[in-house]
Write a protein that binds this DNA or RNA. Structure first.
Lengths: 201, 201
DNA sequence: CCGCCCTCATGACATCTGTCATGAGGAACT
DNA sequence: AGTTCCTCATGACAGATGTCATGAGGGCGG
């Protein structure tokens, strides 16, 4: 019997997934959590075999949870399910020791199969997401460029970005100009969108 | 027995919700769809009592589907479930004749209860979402301002917005300037974000 | 019929942004 | 020690953007 921890902030989805996994004879949902912190706390107590975690949760995101879990409970395999599969997330997740990565568009059979796969030490990444991640390529942005671009996401003017990054406005403009060139965009707002879509920030 | 049509592009969620609703004695999921168009086509054939529709789907969004359903199948009550509850969506949904509006954070009991409620002619809107919608207030934007601001969402330069809206660049700047004032933002990109957050576009 | 508002436009002006050249200081690698 | 890259900065310039004044035309309610 594979003992599963389920974490998802959407109660409806979580309950439904639990119902669905419980239909399988060899799977058992032993705990549920609605936030990242809750998931960690619960995992420490129940020590599940597999953790199925939603990528986006109110507090910690799924990758952070996975990272902590990998460190604290090496016997527990972590897999992530998500609605919005961005290439950057996949990379960060794999780096964090995640064994499975699935979009929520897969069928329940696949979910159950992957739970079994990661439990026996295997890995599984959704083929479509993997292809996207590969085609997106590595980020050409330097760390600082990425920082600044991230601050530009909300549409703030340069002066505010400069204050928040503790840089001079001129420097911010240089980084943004460089980032705009690398993304092929025509201004920083578009560049920020492109970079996010490719998982670079 | 209440006959239900379920539409959600996320296979996993849809299957799970179906499993969950089927646990109720008086509910029966008679059809499922993965896109808006599919939902409409299926509804015409199976004529369900209640349609449970996800707000965000690849092609038509949930509100458009609801609108068509209300016109074509008045006997079918429509309710919408969503991950991202923006006030604007709620307003549009109610205007389209939707009877129930729920975030996916609710429990399965609530879902089942609301299905029964809308089937008997009642209405149900999640209290938290309703409060948000009320506090967000009515949009101060004129229709044209909203159009232009929407085109600005992706960060396009003014000239492109002007082309896409078939306006002169000068006019676009006037509308945007006005919208920036009304949203209290410091540039059009921030204004677009604010307006979207408040459900104005 | 007369305001009032929305739509669309133009011109002028100040400011904000994007781009480029240039340079100092530091870390990493050879 | 030398090379290369990143970080951070300044100054200058062109072009994009935000703001304001102004006006023509149309629809709608009083």
């Amino acid at each position: 019997m594979i003992r599963i921890l389920l974490a998802d902030d959407e109660h409806l989805i979580r309950g439904a997934m639990a119902a669905l996994l419980s239909l399988e004879d060899d799977l058992e949902v032993v705990a549920q959590a609605a936030t990242g912190a809750e998931a960690l706390a619960t995992a420490r107590v129940v020590r599940p075999d597999v953790a199925v975690i939603d990528l986006q949760m109110p507090d910690l995101d799924g990758v952070s949870v996975a990272q902590s879990l990998a460190a604290e409970l090496p016997s527990c395999s972590t897999m992530i399910v998500t609605s919005h599969g961005r290439p950057g997330h996949l990379k960060r997740a794999l780096a964090a020791g995640v064994r499975g990565f699935l979009p929520k568009t897969v069928s329940s059979d696949v979910l159950a199969t992957v739970v079994r796969t990661v439990h026996t030490g295997g890995r599984y990444v959704d083929p479509a997401l993997a292809a996207e991640a590969i085609s997106a390529g590595d980020s050409p942005l330097t760390p600082r460029e990425a920082d600044v671009l991230e601050l530009a996401l909300e549409g703030a003017p340069i002066d505010e970005i400069a204050r928040r990054a503790s840089l001079s406005p001129g420097t911010v403009r240089n980084y943004l100009s460089s980032a705009v060139g690398k993304t092929g965009a025509s201004n920083r707002h578009e560049a920020a969108r492109v970079a996010r879509a490719r998982g670079w920030i």
